[in-house]
Write a protein that binds this DNA or RNA. Structure first.
Lengths: 247, 247
DNA sequence: CGCAATCTTGATTTCGATCAACGAGTGTGG
DNA sequence: CCACACTCGTTGATCGAAATCAAGATTGCG
């Protein structure tokens, strides 16, 4: 094999994934597969190692308890790559589109031998898993120690960095998910989220133009309401675009 | 290199680590190093990849917010292997002994080349990171959706599995950490933990012989109070003992 | 023994959940 | 075109769980 710029390069089979994993496989059949999901649609994580890259929309990694309580453990927006845990005993997870979304699915379950034999690929996966752990930790602290206002401000700032659109009047964000979903992500309930949004608006930290759109003039001010900085780049198991030398 | 049983086998340089990682290194200098820690002692995670195996005691991965609130994001008891996130921007983490502890530290920061060139090692690390993610997710759900009683029952059952000692009268657990530490792990405060312990005792789910020792007759009953099953084996980034084929 | 740290318990407050009503927006069918 | 059902979001009233504040009790250690 040759060396080459994989991430976003012309040679990669899925340019939009921008993760470089595809190019490291030995080209056996299960190649990346595009999927479209409607809002509310679920995808079972199934068995075996699979990776997903979000191309559009917003996708959640969810779990639920016996009595129906749901917890969203992670959100992925375009550019994020994620890999659900292969949990068999304790909790079961599924992937759910919170808005119409497009994903690229990479099924590595039949590539176990490739992974075990390709150090570059294996260490890429390790790096990726570490990156994912990092963002889970931040969310864990959020749920363990932040109050409602802090959680919501962190969330709004996070979404602004992820999917906000810079305009002359500030950063405009189209929130592609329902209050219920936000609540399940933040460990609150939907009414509480709605109430806190009102408080945020009253405090002029964000201006809600409609239930699904807000404008932030000063992201730093919003962020400083939470004692944890929001990530400035897409969170999750992402890959930076960079040169990868093939073995 | 030959094939062999590394985990716990006679050939491994650090039998007690039981993780098989050491044996996969090419034997360059920074070899495993034993450390003893007093209660309250901290270890900075520093830069570069390091792995720790707990040999004795109990060790926490901690972080804290600007105003001093502390969150323990993970606990490691003997047999656990863990790898702190190399967080530089958002949160900073440290390792803290909650009781006198012994660790084995493996510094891989100078072995980047070995990792990138050794597929078995790299995929071991990936597997390990995935295992760690799995237990963080369970804790995240605990903090997001469980009430105090559920969190405490899950914790007591978890500790019973991890460090309980089977006796004729039930599973006896010497709790090696303070109420404050339990609270910081469970996202509660120390007084609340103490109150819930009293309720647990009154409900005969566990019998507190002293502030640092309890006996559980029926772990299943304790566990069923929480809507998430406790892990039956040491949580965290653990390795199963198994045959490893060296490349 | 005496002191300090830790644990427990009580009183009160606060925050978020729950229950309930209502309004806005959307889609459907008559 | 309107009537209707339906989902979603907002707001109010009330309740309950946990935090906070404040004693005491217990434990452990020099």
């Amino acid at each position: 094999m040759a060396s080459g710029k994989l991430a976003g390069g012309a040679g990669g089979p899925f340019r939009s994934c921008a993760n470089g994993i595809c190019g490291l496989l030995d080209g056996g059949p299960p190649l990346p597969r595009l999927r479209s999901m409607e809002r509310g649609e679920r995808l079972d994580t199934g068995t075996g190692l699979k990776l997903w890259t979000v191309l559009g929309g917003i996708v959640a990694l969810c779990t639920s308890l016996a009595d129906g309580r749901r917890q969203i453990v992670g959100l992925s927006t375009p550019g994020n790559l994620f890999c659900p845990p292969d949990e068999t005993e304790r909790l079961d997870f599924w992937i759910e589109a919170l808005a119409p979304s497009q994903l690229c699915e990479l099924d590595l379950s039949s590539h176990a031998r490739t992974i075990a034999g390709n150090a570059t690929l294996a260490s890429e996966l390790f790096r990726a898993a570490q990156g994912q752990a990092r963002s889970i930790y931040a969310h864990l602290v959020t749920l363990g120690r932040l109050d409602g206002m802090e959680r919501v401000c962190l969330f709004l700032a996070d979404m602004a960095w992820r999917i906000g659109e810079r305009t002359p009047e500030g950063c405009r964000v189209r929130l592609p998910m329902a209050r219920e979903d936000i609540a399940d992500y933040l460990g609150l309930n939907a009414e509480t989220v709605s109430r806190i949004f009102s408080r945020v608006k009253k405090a002029r930290l964000a201006d809600f133009r409609s239930p699904t759109e807000y404008v932030v003039q000063d992201i730093a001010a919003l962020q400083s309401r939470a004692p944890i900085p929001a990530p400035h780049r897409p969170a999750g198991l992402e890959f930076e675009e960079r040169e990868v030398a093939l073995s």
